[in-house]
């Protein structure tokens, strides 16, 4: 893996945000995603932005790195902005070129929506940047625990998720190794016609699938050998426990959100 950059890839650390219980982070982000949609004026937007940037500061990660991590999304944000500017026909006309007009309403709405979008991406990427994948799955499993009563296989779903997350780096590693091996055998992944580049993928995919199946088989065997039988009666090695910083964070977050309700129109 490693030479690829993964959006919001976990960066181990000991910052305030890193130390929060993953459930706290999940709940905050989950509610934040909804709350963002209720912002409707400059003050309320700025308030949420302030909150997001305070969170960024608390992660002790370099802002440059975080921004770079969401680069692929920048394109979407700009696209949304342009779309709204072109499509919306509200408010006074600011600029007119032939039959094409830019309205003030379009600019306002475009800015609002893309701002919203940016806040969402920024805050959710903080979750994955500061929380190990396994922590996220554990937290999800606990938070969704009540749904077991509805016969939803929460434990199994969480296990599937953690296994997939666990093997992403392994598969990327494998991909890099095999593509290097095939490049040494004269495969050219970078140049040539579309057709030849598609053919170049076969020597990469076949070994990759074979090793993925082999790994899956080994894993299943190892789990069975150790007596894995699903969630029934299973206890956890890592118990999640809310600590003081979680209570403090929850109170501060609540205060921020109450303030937000006053700030919006």
């Amino acid at each position: 893996m490693k030479s690829y950059m993964i959006i919001g890839q976990y960066v181990p650390g000991h910052s305030f945000i890193h130390r929060l219980d993953p459930r706290t982070k999940l709940m905050i982000i989950f509610t934040f995603v909804f709350i963002v949609f209720f912002a409707n004026n400059l003050v309320s937007y700025s308030w949420l932005t302030l909150f997001a940037f305070a969170a960024v500061l608390l992660t002790q990660l370099r802002l440059g790195y975080i921004i770079k991590g969401i680069t692929p999304v920048w394109f979407l944000i700009v696209f949304t902005l342009l779309l709204h500017i072109i499509v919306t026909k509200e408010g006074p006309i600011l600029l007119e070129i032939g039959s094409f007009a830019i309205h003030q309403g379009g600019i306002e709405r475009g800015l609002m929506i893309s701002w919203r979008f940016m806040l969402l991406v920024l805050v959710t990427s903080l979750l994955t940047l500061t929380t190990a994948p396994m922590e996220i799955t554990d937290a999800l499993e606990m938070l969704l625990g009540p749904f077991k009563k509805l016969r939803i296989p929460v434990h199994e779903l969480a296990l599937m998720m953690s296994i997939s997350l666990r093997f992403i780096p392994t598969l990327l590693d494998e991909t890099e190794k095999i593509s290097k091996a095939q490049a040494s055998r004269g495969v050219d992944f970078r140049t040539g016609s579309m057709k030849s580049r598609i053919y170049a993928i076969v020597p990469l995919l076949v070994p990759l699938f074979i090793s993925a199946f082999k790994r899956a088989e080994d894993l299943a065997m190892a789990m069975e050998a150790r007596g894995y039988r699903g969630s029934e009666g299973r206890t956890k090695l890592r118990q999640l426990q809310f600590k003081r910083i979680d209570y403090i964070t929850a109170i501060v977050y609540l205060a921020v959100m109450i303030m937000f309700l006053f700030l919006r129109q």
């Binding site: 190794k177 095999i178 290097k180 091996a181 095939q182 040494s184 055998r185 020597p203 070994p207 090793s211």
Partner: peptide
Amino acid sequence: FQYPEHQL
């Protein structure tokens, strides 16, 4: 490479 059989 190490474990060259993986490239077959």
